[in-house]
Amino acid sequence: MSVKKPLILVTNDDGITAPGIRALIEVMKTLGEVIVVAPDSPQSGMGHAITINDTIYCDPVKLKKNVAHKEYSCSGTPADCVKIGKQEILPRTPDLCVSGINHGSNSSINVIYSGTMSAAVEAGVEGIPAIGFSLLDYSLDADFEPCKRFIKTIAQHVLKNGMAPGVVLNVNIPKLSEKEIKGIKICRQAKARWVEDFDKRQNPQGRDYYWLTGKFVNEDKGEDTDEWALENGYISVVPIQFDLTAHHYINELNSWEL
């Protein structure tokens, strides 16, 4: 009796032609049957946005000759891609959803802005084990080879062990050679933030416009955080949840006797 291969949904936020998703597809093809549903253009920083005031198109594409897996280019957001992939494209609920490999960090506070991680979270909402992968290299020609072995290992463990309901993995990988990566650390999200500013300018017609600028500030000195792991040569794995309830504060609010 033949064993059914795992069905793996691959998506991202950098767009279906981005080198990062190409690398992720190659890794996932060694683990199961791959179907790709990804944005037709870059969607970085979209967070968990969904399309409600426009139509969504999702068309089959063939970006390479002689490939066995199916790919679909979607006009929507990363979260849209997961929704439409599960509801309309895939023949059954996937065994795993992987998002990425993102060009750039999604550690600490970046997770709430990330389209990459929102796609993974959307899969989690749908009850699908999910992982978001990010490499700390924003370059279009980033080298994804050093992280492929680690990505495969993490994905294999999720396929074998599953994930707790409501939990997905946020995986960030330092920009290092394979030999320089010290290993994988399970971490918590660092308490860090962006100190932001707006660069105000004027266009030739005299209308004001703004560019968002800022610097990243890590206020967390703990050695159990994703930022510490990345700065010290480790891959960080943070389990995140989409239940945003501050459970520890419920008793405090009850004391207000509202």
Rank of each mutant, 00 (worst) to 15 (best):
P129L: 05
A49S: 11
P60E: 14
K4F: 00
Y138D: 03
C81S: 03
L24K: 07
H247V: 12
D80L: 03
P42C: 07
L9A: 09
K179C: 01
S75H: 07
K191N: 03
K70G: 00
C147E: 09
N254T: 14
E126K: 02
D243W: 02
G76T: 05
E252C: 10
A79T: 12
I35W: 08
E88T: 02
H157T: 11
H247I: 06
K221L: 14
L31C: 00
Q87E: 11
D13C: 08
A119M: 00
Y57N: 13
G214R: 11
A229K: 08
V167S: 01
Q43H: 05
E178M: 09
I35E: 03
S139A: 14
K65P: 07
V237A: 08
S99M: 08
V67I: 15
K182A: 13
C97V: 15
D208I: 06
V3A: 13
I8P: 09
L90F: 08
N12V: 01
T11E: 01
S99D: 09
H247L: 11
G222R: 12
T55E: 10
L244Q: 08
L159I: 07
T55D: 09
V98H: 07
C81K: 03
P239Y: 06
N251D: 14
N203Y: 11
I240V: 15
K70Q: 12
S44N: 09
